[in-house]
């Protein structure tokens, strides 16, 4: 019975993967063109701050479903402030601060009141989305001045600001996660919260740091999106939180916490963005995108299972 189950679990995705690879090979020249690679890197870079935030949360065995709503609210705040004539840097600061506060709200529910993350962050998700809809009366805010776009998305050649920012962020996090006490403690508290607490580590405080940084990361994504489209929708980013979690899982993180690396998570997001891109390049119906994502996730999880078998 279990052998049959195992067979199905392996053979079925393999067959689908074979078709997938065939599709990739067909569109490979277009996929590998310089313009397309830059595009993929660019779209991934725009999401990196949120992926890094989710990585910090997953290290502690947590996640925040409200990150998408958080990004939308930040985008709206930034757009509204800009339209009202607030200077660029102050508008960005306001949006990012709101993102941090949103993260702290999740932290209060999950870490202080000890509501499970699934429920607690669902509450903040609804609250933040509701706020975004309220302040905009449900309408898209347009006509965001060019100055925001110039400031946020400027840069020269292919190394535009978002890509540069994503690279610097990733390298810093990689370095900090090896050498800095705060980041090492995120790993320790995620690996064994009881042991960390017994040794005097403030686990609740660490959760506050992770939730706040994730909120700030999501808000940064919101600001960059506003700069890119020069508008902000209160309904934007419906899938940001879940896709960030998916990216981390593809990147080899364990939802129980304590393991994983930021680079893997960013590569995970690169794979997700590439999958959508490949479906688009193949010229098939856009509705295939989600199936492609499902396949990528399934393969990632199965690889994780195989790895566990091997090490056991």
């Amino acid at each position: 019975m279990s052998a049959l189950l195992r067979l199905n679990f392996v053979t079925l995705p393999l067959a689908v993967a074979a078709i997938y690879v065939a599709v990739i090979l067909m569109v490979l020249p277009a996929f590998l063109s310089q313009g397309n690679l830059v595009l993929i890197s660019y779209y991934t870079a725009l999401l990196v701050p949120c992926v890094i935030g989710t990585y910090l949360l997953i290290l502690l065995g947590l996640f925040d479903l409200s990150l998408g709503a958080n990004a939308a609210l930040a985008a709206v705040i930034c757009a509204k402030a800009m339209s009202a004539g607030v200077p660029v840097s102050i508008s960005i600061l306001l949006a990012v601060a709101a993102g941090g506060l949103g993260g702290i709200a999740s932290w209060i529910l999950v870490a202080v009141f000890r509501i499970p993350a699934l429920i607690g962050t669902l509450i903040t998700m609804s609250a933040l989305r509701g706020l975004a809809l309220l302040v905009t009366s449900g309408r898209v805010i347009g006509g965001v001045p060019q100055s925001l776009t110039d400031r946020v998305l400027g840069g020269s050649g292919h190394l535009v600001n978002p890509i540069l920012f994503a690279l610097v962020l990733l390298l810093s996090i990689e370095f900090l996660s090896r050498r800095h006490r705060l980041f090492r403690r995120l790993y320790h508290a995620g690996s064994n919260p009881g042991a960390a607490a017994s040794n005097g580590i403030n686990v609740t405080g660490l959760k506050c740091v992770a939730f706040t940084m994730a909120g700030i990361g999501a808000a940064t994504v919101g600001v960059m999106q506003t700069a890119r489209t020069q508008s902000a929708s209160p309904l934007a980013f419906p899938e940001l939180a879940l896709e960030s979690i998916a990216a981390c899982i593809i990147g080899g993180m364990s939802l129980s916490g304590g393991r994983g690396a930021a680079t893997g998570c960013v590569l995970g997001m690169l794979i997700l963005v590439s999958s959508r891109n490949i479906v688009a390049l193949a010229g098939v119906d856009v509705y295939w995108e989600d199936l492609a994502i499902a396949l990528v996730l399934l393969v990632a999880v199965l690889l994780g299972v195989v790895r566990k078998w091997r090490s056991a």
Binding site: R179, Y187, G194, A195, A196, N199, G200
Partner: peptide, 27 residues
């Protein structure tokens, strides 16, 4: 139970919660 972090190194477990750091918090 030792209060150990299974995923961390022996060195990190020895100093868990009391790591010697630079003023900026680097180990």
């Amino acid at each position: 139970d030792g209060a150990l972090c299974a995923d961390a190194s022996v060195l990190e477990n020895l100093f868990l919660g009391a790591e010697p750091v630079t003023p900026l918090g680097f180990l």
